[in-house]
């Protein structure tokens, strides 16, 4: 990063914090120094990249998994709905942290070999997202009025035709808000990679903190970085919702 620009930012941040401290009438004696953050900012950016990559990958994976499971859960056959229901309920009702730790530390006991951290956490995150997506998908389809199904059937549509032309276009609109909510949560949840030493944003922050003894600067910056990633995403989701509103 450009040295002068970096120094300027660093000065600005420090001044801002002093000002805040004064305004709040604080008696803190801590002298914040954001120069150290600026110095290691590329590492944080790399971490943010990994975080985004994980969020994106596991959201897409969870979406695919969710659509497949959700479809199976809509079936009339018990032997299909039962196992998928069990999966969904199980992953919705256990903490993601426990799941990731389980895949990383417990599963190797069964397999006889250990999964790399990225795979254990990726698996946990994807299955977790998949469970919620399945529920969102199933709920969306089932929320469509019975009259729509019968009107489509009465026209002579096959199941696939009525799904594609009548049910899904309406259901998808209803799935968008819960799906974006879950995606926002998912990006936040990638911070749990940190517990198995996956190299995400939170992990880099912790590493740099232990190197520099500057938790205030790093964790403040990291919080802001998550915010910068998520706030536009929620705005975008709002716009999308408004656009597809019928």
């Amino acid at each position: 990063m450009d040295a002068i620009f970096g120094a300027n930012i660093c000065w600005l941040l420090s001044r801002g914090l002093h000002l805040l401290n004064d305004l709040a009438g604080g008696h803190g004696t801590y002298q914040a120094d954001f120069c150290v953050v600026v110095k290691h900012f590329d590492a944080l950016l790399r971490g943010a990249g990994i975080t985004l990559l994980y969020a994106f990958g596991t959201i897409v994976g969870g979406l695919v998994l969710g659509v497949l499971c959700g479809t199976a859960m809509l079936s009339r056959h018990k032997f299909l709905t039962l196992p998928f229901n069990a999966y969904v309920q199980f992953f919705r009702c256990t903490p993601l942290l426990v799941q990731i730790v389980w895949f990383y530390y417990a599963l190797p006991m069964l397999l006889g070999y250990s999964l790399p951290a990225w795979m254990a956490s990726g698996l946990g995150l994807t299955l977790y997202m998949g469970a919620f997506c399945a529920e969102i998908f199933r709920g969306g389809i089932q929320s469509i009025d019975r009259g729509q199904w019968q009107a489509a059937r009465a026209l002579g549509m096959t199941y696939l035709q009525l799904m594609r032309r009548v049910i899904l276009p309406q259901a998808m609109r209803r799935m968008i808000p819960p799906f974006t909510n879950q995606s926002v949560l998912q990006l936040k949840n990638t911070s749990l990679l940190y517990v198995v030493a996956g190299h995400d944003l939170m992990y880099y922050a912790a590493q740099l903190t232990s190197q520099t003894f500057r938790p205030f600067e790093f964790y403040t910056t990291v919080a802001m970085m998550y915010f910068v990633m998520l706030y536009p995403a929620t705005k975008f989701a709002k716009r999308l919702e408004a656009r597809v509103d019928i």
């Binding site: 009025d145 019968q150 009107a151 489509a152 009465a154 026209l155 002579g156 549509m157 032309r165 309406q170």
Partner: peptide, 18 residues
């Protein structure tokens, strides 16, 4: 589906595709 194409049905609640 084929059987139903020869029968038109109209419902109390219209059930148009919104």
């Amino acid at each position: 589906a084929k059987y139903r194409t020869q029968i038109g049905m109209v419902f109390q609640q219209f059930d148009l595709f919104p």
